[in-house]
Design a protein around this nucleic acid. Structure first.
Lengths: 221, 221
DNA sequence: CCTCAAGGTGACCGAGCGGTCCGTTTCGCT
DNA sequence: AGCGAAACGGACCGCTCGGTCACCTTGAGG
């Protein structure tokens, strides 16, 4: 997982001095928690404070806020890809797909920054995009198995499934503080939607991949 | 629509001088377009520029950015409530509910600020909350009709339907720039999910209303 | 045409942000 | 213990934002 002494883009992967490794760990942990609770808008200063280090130390380890964020998002994406890959060994394709979707929505529900970053290509760095591609691939593999067995309707793709994860979280979002498990309701609803056989095919052609190459012709005014 | 000469909260409803009414109109139009395209984060300065007025003029008409935003959100919510109410007269309850959901998702898709504001109670003023309550009520009325006729499964509520609107938009979000109509696919998927009869009941108790009374125990650090 | 209050405006303010820099501390090696 | 390099920290910079204010313009009644 990741080259040892290659530089990970712009910042040395892992420093050698003991205080530096410890602070890097503290920093990653604090950032993960803070981003999860409060979203991408939290200030670097607050993360530093929570980690018990100075603001400058943050930028010694990560050249920018975005890089710190990407490091954390990448870890979670890889974890989910791993879960999906492991589930390809599960015998029952329907159960495997359901378990994958459960794991996916759980991440969205747990982490506010994850929700905000995924699907906003304008904010994403190349590594995150690659990880999302891999996520779509494993979702497609799981979906294909279920589709061939007739568990899911024939015109549903892995990209559909990946996109639904965020949609399910969004549906449950405003209930989450009062009903932390409400998302399971909407996961089941969506799962019934993709497994029901109406005879009709869904409107609009199914998505093959995510359009991740946003030229970001943004608010350059 | 709405009281004529009542003051709308904190700012005089409609001024009397001709230039003032005209500028107010320009401002509302520019703000609606800008919020729709770019979300709540756009600066007041940009809205003013787009309306062709000075920044100070914005604050003469609306005491804060949030009030301007609320005025626009309120208009759209009321419009959707009106559409839903009208659809209660439609003969076919299933078609009526489907049409209501279509109208709802269309608004979400068209307006980025709408997506960002709805369901974030921490940002909402009382009038917007009331409008959302009314929206849930009309959604419940439409859903109840469809439920009684056996069109939708028995354990689906109007609040479920209202929440799904945002979820559907979110699902289609990253496809929207390349495939502006992709949301129809996920609307159909969700509609199939609430109309299919699996025999199983959904997990988690159905939501009765939205928990709109967020005490906002926020990042007051 | 005159008057004056209502309306318009942009320089300005304070707060918060990401990111930089350099004097100071600490680690690890000899 | 002594030393050089690496890491630390927080004052600091430039920028943007929402919101204010004192001065100027303009509409409309007389």
């Amino acid at each position: 997982m990741g080259g040892r002494r290659h530089m990970t883009g712009t910042t040395p992967a892992v420093p050698s001095r003991s205080d530096a490794v410890r602070n890097r760990r503290l920093l990653l942990d604090a950032a993960a928690k803070t981003f999860a609770e409060r979203g991408v808008e939290v200030s670097i200063g607050e993360i530093a404070q929570r980690a018990g280090v100075g603001k400058g130390t943050v930028f010694r380890h990560f050249s920018s806020k975005e890089e710190l964020l990407a490091a954390i998002m990448l870890g979670m994406l890889d974890e989910l890809v791993g879960t999906g890959t492991a589930l390809l060994a599960e015998g029952d394709p329907g159960r495997a797909l359901h378990a994958f979707m459960t794991a996916g929505v759980e991440i969205f529900v747990r982490d506010r920054a994850f929700c905000e970053v995924i699907g906003r290509p304008s904010l994403q760095n190349p590594q995150v995009r690659d990880a999302i591609d891999r996520l779509c691939d494993v979702a497609e593999a799981l979906t294909a198995r279920a589709r061939e067995q007739g568990v899911v309707r024939p015109d549903v793709t892995g990209t559909d499934v990946a996109l639904l994860l965020g949609g399910i979280q969004r549906t449950a979002e405003s209930l989450l503080s009062a009903e932390p498990q409400a998302w399971r309701r909407y996961l089941e609803l969506a799962f019934d939607g993709i497994t029901t056989h109406t005879g009709r095919t869904l409107p609009h052609p199914p998505p093959r991949h995510l359009p991740l190459a946003a030229p970001a012709a943004d608010h350059g005014r």
